[in-house]
Design a binder for these strands. Sequence first.
DNA 1: CGTCCGTTTCAGAAATTTCTGAAACTCAGA
DNA 2: TCTGAGTTTCAGAAATTTCTGAAACGGACG
Lengths: 183, 183
Amino acid sequence: MTLTPLQQDFVLHFGEMGSRWGINRTVGQIYALLFLSEEPLNAEAITSALSISRSNTSMGLKELQSWNLVRLRHRPGDRRDYFTTPDDLWEIVRTLIAERRKREIDPTLTTLRELEMRGSTGDPYAEARIAELRELIEMMTQFHDEMNRLETERLVQLMTMGRKLGGLLEKTNKMKFWGTNDT
Amino acid sequence: MTLTPLQQDFVLHFGEMGSRWGINRTVGQIYALLFLSEEPLNAEAITSALSISRSNTSMGLKELQSWNLVRLRHRPGDRRDYFTTPDDLWEIVRTLIAERRKREIDPTLTTLRELEMRGSTGDPYAEARIAELRELIEMMTQFHDEMNRLETERLVQLMTMGRKLGGLLEKTNKMKFWGTNDT
DNA sequence: CGTCCGTTTCAGAAATTTCTGAAACTCAGA
DNA sequence: TCTGAGTTTCAGAAATTTCTGAAACGGACG
């Protein structure tokens, strides 16, 4: 399988970016390729399109699956696995954030809580700092949970509001909105 | 300089996490150490606290400076540089997001725009997919810009509202809020 | 049961990143 | 201008990550 120049360059870019994103070049390239392919691809097609080894493709796909970033498809009478990315970009973003949180945030939260469990250590400043950090992270993850609960349409709406957010907060404050509207 | 067990474990954890965050172990450790230190530290103190080489410390600090994650202090009659992290955790988060965006998002946006410039390539699906992705990223960065514009207090308020967000959107829709309140 | 088609695992090779010690550099004060 | 405390740079060493080819594995079908 051979790529158009557009696909080529897109794939190469995501390969490069991969490194900055904590995934490796190959994984980035595989994902980029799937993202641009209308039809699902099997491992063999990916291998030849990217000129990498079959086992490297296998590793990459495994990694992408562990990130929930690809979907598995099958063709009748063909037992090879075919891979695609979701059509809905928002779904992709959600997954990305969720997985990143799982890997980057949650373990830290656990550690911070453990450190707090120790009780007094003779280093009040450090203790306070850790507690403060834990609280901040908790607040942000809760917010994320709430955002996740919104359907795509509402989310887009929220993001589109843009500069109106500040004004909105102001207004709702005046209205004593928060105490009374516990949907 | 020697660390308390609490500092030790916190520092080690951030060292480990560092790898998942696209910064290296040492940089993570240096940052963690500064984060827990009430007093600013100089390079020598960091070197001995973490048992790393002086030049490694220097590299790490340089990297942290390039991320805008540390502040420089000076003591009268001492020309060594002393480093701290900002007291305000929200400021840290803002910086982190801003820098991450600069490294991980902006280059991609540029590339996507370049790819679109090419015009028709005989691969309409790929073109559409790229355009869609570019739009999504633009929307998210704009939203980020707007959030950044809010002062910390308002931001906390927004995050705290949690589950009320969905209801709020509903309500404001009914009120035809968006067309009329262009603060 | 054996074969075939496909996937996964794994140990070593290759590439990349991180870390170190030594040398070069900077600049304030004598 | 020289000295010396402090910082930065850099080439190679060490460690880590990624990639490969070969071998093991799995399970559908005759």
